[in-house]
């Protein structure tokens, strides 16, 4: 069917080429632009959810809740030592007191913290695989002799709602993408029907001279392909500019939550395929619309 795109010049002349002059390429350009934005949003969110989720799922925070500072220090150092030798633990880092106080100061105030309020010690550990309840229990048991008050929190637990939101937004983006493709298909169908009506006389003459439905369909699908390709390229260029600008802004935001919010390399390939897919879809819809309409003619 794609070979039909390269019709000989004399066949192309059977219906006049109205590309670019009509509104169809610009409608396709807008549809492509919106489709690409939806796809880009979906790809970026999927990437963020995958990267962030995989990373956070391996992180666990150990809290040493002990009011006596000296005992807390002893327990903290002992827990870190045990964790460093524990199987499956790849990284252990005791969070400095100053950093903990800095994190708490917005809620408790500098004065209160300086008033020697007991603050838990924190140990960030990273596992070689996503934390599960079995692993946490194993670590808890290993720590209990030296730090009976140790509390282990998987970071995936408190980030779960965020990634759940990301997944919902991803599904929404996929839904929007599908709706836009359906709207594009409907637009192409209407445009082809309109073009078919405009050229009904020519098609009837072709029929009376022995022209086949496929010959007529090729004329319209070629014309629609040219319109769609032109519009899709314009929409692609605009969408890439917008995605690049947003990517720069994400990078500038320097937020840990947005650290994975970047277009993956395969995302650019997917975005480049979408305009071609829209062109192919337009050709297919044009062909089916014409063949379906011509069946009603003798």
């Amino acid at each position: 069917m794609l070979l039909d795109f390269a019709l000989p010049e004399h066949e192309r002349k059977l219906i006049p080429d109205g590309r670019v002059s009509g509104s169809m390429p610009w409608v396709i350009a807008i549809m492509t632009f919106l489709t690409l934005l939806a796809a880009a949003a979906g790809l970026i969110m999927a990437n963020a959810a995958m990267q962030g989720g995989a990373d956070l799922a391996r992180q666990v925070t150990v809290q040493i809740i002990e009011p006596d500072p000296t005992a807390r220090k002893v327990q903290s150092d002992g827990a870190a030592r045990i964790l460093r030798s524990a199987p499956g633990v790849t990284d252990v880092e005791i969070v400095p007191d100053a950093q903990i106080r800095e994190m708490l100061s917005p809620w408790l105030g500098e004065d209160v913290i300086d008033a020697d309020i007991p603050v838990p010690s924190l140990i960030d550990i990273r596992l070689d695989s996503p934390a599960n309840e079995e692993k946490l229990t194993e670590l808890r048991n290993a720590l209990s002799p030296i730090a009976p008050s140790a509390k282990l929190d998987s970071q995936a637990d408190w980030m779960a709602p965020f990634f759940s939101l990301m997944n919902s937004l991803l599904l929404l983006a996929v839904g929007i993408l599908l709706l836009l493709l359906i709207a594009t298909s409907a637009t192409v169908m209407l445009a082809v029907r309109s073009a078919l009506n405009n050229h009904r006389e020519t098609i009837e003459i072709m029929h009376m001279m022995g022209g086949t439905d496929v010959q007529a369909a090729r004329l319209f699908q070629r014309r629609m392909a040219l319109d769609a390709l032109f519009g899709a390229v314009i929409g692609f260029i605009l969408a890439v500019i917008v995605v690049l600008l947003l990517s720069f802004q994400f990078s500038a935001a320097n937020s840990s939550l947005l650290s994975g919010a970047a277009m993956p390399w395969y995302g650019w390939i997917a975005l480049a395929i979408i305009p071609l897919a829209i062109t192919g879809l337009a050709m297919l819809i044009a062909r089916r619309t014409v063949l379906s309409a011509l069946k009603k003619m003798l």
């Binding site: 219906i15 006389e201 003459i205 001279m209 022995g210």
Partner: peptide, 24 residues
């Protein structure tokens, strides 16, 4: 007559041959 309005005289006359797949 039902000539194809956007085709030249030559192309209108050649139409049946082209539909039949005759080479240029």
């Amino acid at each position: 007559f039902r000539l194809v309005p956007h085709l030249s005289t030559f192309d209108n006359i050649a139409l049946p041959l082209r539909i039949a797949g005759i080479q240029e």
